[in-house]
């Protein structure tokens, strides 16, 4: 569960990007966060994994208060969520399986178990034929599928994604949306996606939040 109470976010003291944000995201929900460019949707998402600190208010992620977290709390929250970025953020010196193994290794799984899980996930994202490849040898859509596999690797309760299809063509974007929908429907993972364009005919139930002038409101 994600619970925000009167949160304020800003990069400087003069201008709040998010003002008095109140919302709640329940387990197993699929939530889109929308808004115009520069409205603060990515900033809001960053606050979920502690990349930006709150100026005021309270933010609870998976029962942990990360309003002003210690390094230990922050690490603990990050270990238990999956993150997907628009620019994939794959480690280019590592093979795609090694990239998928990363959250498992951080969570203390053995190399063998991590490797098995990575191979299983490569098959799940339909990239078994790319085993042993480096990210630079893959297309953008394939790299994003590796990022989705990495986000799913440690079976997190929450996945947050920042414009996951922003750099992809329609068919690659559809594959990524399908993977996220499956994760939500079949594995019960809460998914929070920042996007400037909610896909049409999404096929599963979702909620939509939008940000305008720093105010978060629910789109009905």
């Amino acid at each position: 569960m994600i619970k925000a109470k009167e949160i304020y976010l800003s990069y400087d003291e003069n201008r709040f990007i998010i003002k008095k944000g109140n919302f709640q995201i329940k387990p197993r929900e699929f939530v889109f966060i929308g808004g115009a460019s520069g409205s603060g949707k990515s900033t809001l998402l960053k606050s979920f994994y502690g990349a930006i600190s709150l100026k005021h208010g309270q933010l609870i992620i998976d029962d942990k208060d990360i309003s002003s977290p210690s390094n230990r709390t922050l690490r603990s929250v990050r270990k238990n969520i999956g993150v997907i970025f628009q620019d994939y953020k794959l480690i280019k010196e590592w093979t795609i399986e090694e990239n998928i193994m990363l959250p498992l290794k951080i969570n203390g799984y053995s190399s063998d178990i991590s490797k098995q899980q990575a191979i299983k996930l490569l098959s799940h994202v339909k990239l078994s034929h790319r085993e042993g490849f480096y990210p630079s040898q893959l297309s953008g859509g394939e790299q994003q599928r590796v990022a989705v596999a990495r986000a799913l690797a440690h079976n997190p309760k929450i996945i947050i994604a920042d414009e996951p299809t922003g750099n992809l063509d329609d068919s690659s974007a559809d594959l990524v949306w399908n993977l996220l929908k499956n994760a939500n429907e079949q594995l019960g993972i809460t998914i929070v996606v920042v996007t400037h364009r909610v896909p049409r005919n999404f096929g599963i139930g979702f909620r939509q939040l939008s940000i305008e002038d720093g105010i978060i409101y629910e789109v009905c």
Binding site: Y49, R78, N80, L90, I91, E93, L102
Partner: peptide, 16 residues
């Protein structure tokens, strides 16, 4: 730096 930040985003300690 890029690798370190990616690892830290996934909850790795600075030492790891």
């Amino acid at each position: 730096q890029e690798k370190i930040s990616i690892m830290q985003l996934h909850g790795a300690s600075i030492l790891y």
